[in-house]
Simulated assay, not measured.
Amino acid sequence: MAKQISELKLGILGGGQLGRMLIQEAINYNLSVSALDPDPDAPCKHITHKFECGSITDFDTVYNFGKKADIITIEIEKVNIEALEQLEKEGKIVFPQSRVIRLIQDKGVQKQFFKENDIPTAPFQLVNSQDDILNANFTYPFILKQRKDGYDGKGVMKINSIAEVENAFDAPSLIEELIDFDKEIAVIVARNSNGDMKTFPMVEMEFNAEANLVEFLISPSTYPDDIQQRAEQIACNIAQALNITGILAVEMFVTRDGEILVNELAPRPHNSGHQTIEGNYVSQFEQHLRAIFNLPLGDTRSVSNAVMINLLGEKGHEGLAKYSGLEKIMAIDGVYVHLYGKKYTKPFRKMGHVTVVDQNRDYAIEKARFVQQTLKVITP
Rank of each mutant, 00 (worst) to 15 (best):
A321P: 08
K68Y: 06
H274G: 07
V214F: 02
R102V: 11
F293H: 12
G258R: 08
L297F: 04
N30G: 12
Q275H: 10
K50T: 04
M157D: 00
Q105V: 05
D70G: 12
E264G: 07
F348Y: 13
I292K: 13
Q112H: 14
E278W: 13
D358H: 15
F113R: 13
E206T: 12
K154P: 01
S221Y: 10
N294T: 15
T199F: 07
I93A: 14
I101L: 14
Q125S: 15
F348R: 05
I162F: 05
G316N: 13
I74R: 01
D196M: 00
D58I: 03
I175W: 12
K68Q: 15
N160D: 12
E176A: 09
S161R: 08
M330W: 00
S98C: 05
I101T: 10
V356L: 03
S34M: 14
L289G: 03
V282E: 09
S55P: 06
G325A: 09
Q233F: 05
G279W: 05
K3G: 05
A321D: 04
A239R: 04
G313C: 02
F114C: 05
L174V: 06
M351H: 01
P296V: 11
A163M: 09
A209C: 02
S193E: 15
E318W: 00
D182F: 09
V100K: 05
D226S: 12
A239M: 03
K158I: 15
V62I: 14
D196S: 14
V156C: 06
H270P: 05
A241H: 14
P120E: 03
P269Q: 13
S193Q: 13
I260N: 11
E176S: 03
S219D: 02
F51V: 08
L339C: 14
A171P: 00
S219P: 13
D358W: 09
Y340Q: 07
K183W: 04
N160L: 12
A171C: 06
L10N: 01
E286P: 02
T57N: 10
K198F: 01
V262M: 05
M351K: 08
L134P: 01
V307N: 06
A231N: 04
L144A: 04
S283P: 07
G150S: 07
E82I: 04
A136I: 01
T199Y: 09
I47N: 08
N305F: 10
P96V: 14
H353Y: 06
A209N: 11
I12A: 08
I332V: 14
A235D: 08
A235R: 10
V303W: 01
I162K: 15
D226Q: 07
E204H: 03
Y281W: 14
I188N: 00
N194Q: 12
K183H: 04
V377T: 09
A291I: 04
L36D: 11
P40K: 09
F113H: 08
Q86S: 07
L13G: 01
G66M: 06
N167C: 06
P123T: 10
K67S: 11
F51W: 09
E177N: 06
N80M: 14
Q228V: 04
N208C: 03
M308I: 06
A163E: 15
K3L: 13
P347V: 01
K67H: 11
H353M: 05
F113P: 10
V357I: 15
G19L: 06
A122W: 01
E88C: 14
I365M: 09
Y340R: 00
A306M: 12
P172A: 12
H270Y: 02
I23F: 08
